[in-house]
């Protein structure tokens, strides 16, 4: 057994940013003493454009190309899971790193359980324990209320999924080798079938890219006030988000949800209106630079993380805020 296997992801035909973050996490482990090198595996139907130079931090790039691996494979991620399991058997890494994306959050555990070993999901740090030579990870638990540090025991493969946005991607040009790994046999055992994908295109700025987000929660009391949030967001060139409570109530679509089981966002300004700031909501805001809160309860948890706040009824505070923004815009 040797080295670190990083499971990269392809986005728009190129190695995704999150893959660079995984290479940074692998680099940290190497600096701490993990030997055997870093291999980056990528999967897709046509990877001829993928070159080692695009993967700084990887000693080798392994391309696994197969029609069954197009767009993260067929439903349930059967094909990529089978492909990674086959690769694992061939190169026997000590450590396998996935990103905790839609894909990695499923594929990571599935690969681990196929090998009969545990997986640590959604980690925000990895470290080599110099005494045991094994990996220790840090992960938020209880919705982010607490942190847990975990040790991998025994001598099995250590499978870790890493929370996106925590590590800074490795910069520069890669100088590793490149090779192709044939998975046609492995992926022939796919069982779940993807029938169709229905994408709800949101109008305007995507939440994930928005520099300003106006977000509403249960405190808004119904769907109508979201129009006021949209009006303000339009004024500021931003997007509207929501807490899970507002989505579950049917006031806005679930695609608006920010948090642990929703979207992770990284705006310069995050204005929350009528949101209590439960840890599961805040989990989506670790990249937000300035949290601003309007809440009538001075004890609301949101004020612990907010930089600016107004304690009051949003029905009085927000219209005045919006009017002032409009005046300032001239």
């Amino acid at each position: 057994m040797a080295g670190i296997l990083v499971i990269g992801e392809i986005q728009d035909g190129a190695i995704s940013a999150v893959s660079g973050e995984l290479l940074a996490a692998a680099g940290k482990l190497v600096a701490e003493g993990v030997s055997g090198g870093v291999s980056l595996a990528v999967m897709g139907d046509d990877l001829s454009a993928i070159m080692a130079v695009q993967a700084p931090g990887a000693d080798r790039v392994i391309r696994m190309s197969d029609p069954a691996l197009k767009d993260e494979g067929t439903g349930g991620y059967d094909a990529p899971v089978l492909a990674v399991a086959a690769l694992n058997e061939s190169i026997s890494p000590d450590i396998i790193l996935f990103a905790k994306t839609d894909f990695g959050a499923v594929a990571g555990p599935r690969v681990a359980f196929k090998l009969g070993v545990a997986v640590a999901q959604d980690c925000i740090d990895v470290a080599l324990d110099s005494e045991t030579g094994r990996v220790a990870v840090t992960r938020p638990v209880f919705g982010g209320n607490a942190l847990g540090i975990y040790d991998f025991n025994g001598d099995g493969t250590q499978v870790v999924t890493i929370r996106p946005g925590v590590f800074d991607p490795v910069e520069g040009e890669g100088s590793g080798t490149i090779e192709d790994f044939d998975v046609s046999d492995a992926v022939s055992r796919v069982r779940a079938v993807l029938v169709e994908t229905i994408v709800q295109d949101s109008e305007g700025v995507r939440l994930e890219d928005a520099d300003v987000i106006i977000s509403g929660g249960r405190g808004l009391g119904g769907p109508a006030p979201f129009e006021q949030l949209q009006e303000l967001a339009d004024l500021l060139g931003g997007a509207v988000g929501a807490s899970r409570a507002a989505c579950d109530a049917g006031w806005v679509d679930h695609s608006y949800q920010i948090g642990l089981t929703g979207k992770s966002v990284k705006p310069t300004v995050y204005l929350s209106v009528g949101i209590s700031g439960a840890s599961q909501h805040m989990a989506g805001l670790s990249g937000a630079r300035n949290i601003v809160a309007i809440n009538k309860d001075d004890n609301a948890n949101i004020f612990k993380s907010a930089r600016f706040g107004v304690i009051g009824d949003w029905e009085k505070v927000l219209p005045a805020f919006t009017a002032t923004v409009r005046d300032l815009a001239g």
Partner: peptide, 29 residues
Amino acid sequence: DLSLRRLFIPESESQVEIIEGEDEADAGR
């Protein structure tokens, strides 16, 4: 295979600047 070594509540220091006004609308402004 995976065991918890340490469980703790991360420290966070509130640094919020509460904006006050004559009334709620003024605070919004």
